[in-house]
Design a protein around this nucleic acid. Structure first.
Lengths: 160, 160
DNA sequence: TTACATTTATTGTAATTGCAACTATTGTAA
DNA sequence: TTACAATAGTTGCAATTACAATAAATGTAA
């Protein structure tokens, strides 16, 4: 084996190791998906950080702020500022919790619910951008395996 | 079906849709992996943003700065500051490119190469944290499918 | 050659994020 | 009851990241 070939083989091996790393692949995909999502969301005037909250509130209206953060796995301070942004955009409102004076319940406004309705088709389009070449079976396989890695059982709440 | 059951079923459906979304799963996993990596890397005194560069330079020493950024899919300004950090930490050095006065070649120092040697076992440990419950076959399947989603052929460079 | 576009890299500044301190409220146990 | 711990939420400030402007070098085409 010549020197150049040796070098190339060494490079390819290391590259392969990197590109075969679960964490590496997840990170690369996360960044790309985030970029595309940002683009699509900006077309309908929605900020990325508002997006996840809007989705979740549309499925569970009236949660407390801390529950909202917990479900999205966001830290409290982040949720606090995200809700500020939602409120400022007119998508949600804080209401006092009748059961406790220290918790706040978050509700979508009509405007927020309308905006939330535009999101699923964006999500679907981004997902299919990345899964274009996947067969139906491959799609279901990759989802199932990712759920397993995230410890999300196929039929319920995350275990973390 | 009673009212409460109706509500619960509606919630579960939406939740399921979210937790079955490729993008959502990737984002959740990315954040969790990032958190664990940050923790493990801090134990050996390596900053997260230095990490990727260190790995890549260890497989391809002497690349130009822009190539480094391109391979990691980082923007130029970010790479510029990352290299600043690498140099400041004594892990790498900038050298003039004999072929062009506007490009810079980045080389690992001995210290950088030593530090890079500590990384693979950390990567492996984090990966196996998340793939603990996976069979050998499942591991290879999920890697193959993620590579496909990232358009990384099993034997070469990413197409993007 | 000149003129102009492109590439490479850096940097000032604005926006965002993360940390930690803080207030207010509620829970707990003596 | 009181004292103390834990929880919910907010906010000031430091650190980080993103954007856009810049400078310098190189490529290109007349």
């Amino acid at each position: 084996m010549g020197w150049n070939q040796y070098i190339m083989s060494r490079i390819t091996k290391a590259q392969n190791a990197r590109q075969s790393s679960f964490g590496f692949l997840i990170q690369v995909l996360a960044r790309r998906i985030d970029g595309v999502m940002k683009q699509r969301l900006s077309e309908i005037g929605v900020d990325t950080k508002i997006f996840a909250n809007l989705m979740l509130l549309n499925e569970r209206d009236g949660v407390t702020q801390s529950e909202l953060g917990r479900l999205l796995e966001f830290p409290d301070y982040y949720t606090s500022r995200n809700v500020d942004a939602l409120v400022e955009a007119g998508y949600a409102e804080r209401k006092p919790d009748p059961n406790s004076r220290r918790t706040v319940l978050i509700f979508l406004t009509a405007k927020g619910r309308d905006k939330a309705k535009e999101l699923p088709k964006i999500i679907a389009s981004v997902n299919s951008d990345f899964l274009e070449e996947f067969s139906k079976e491959e799609r279901s396989t990759v989802i199932k395996l990712l759920q397993k890695a995230a410890l999300i059982p196929e039929d319920g709440d995350p275990k973390l």
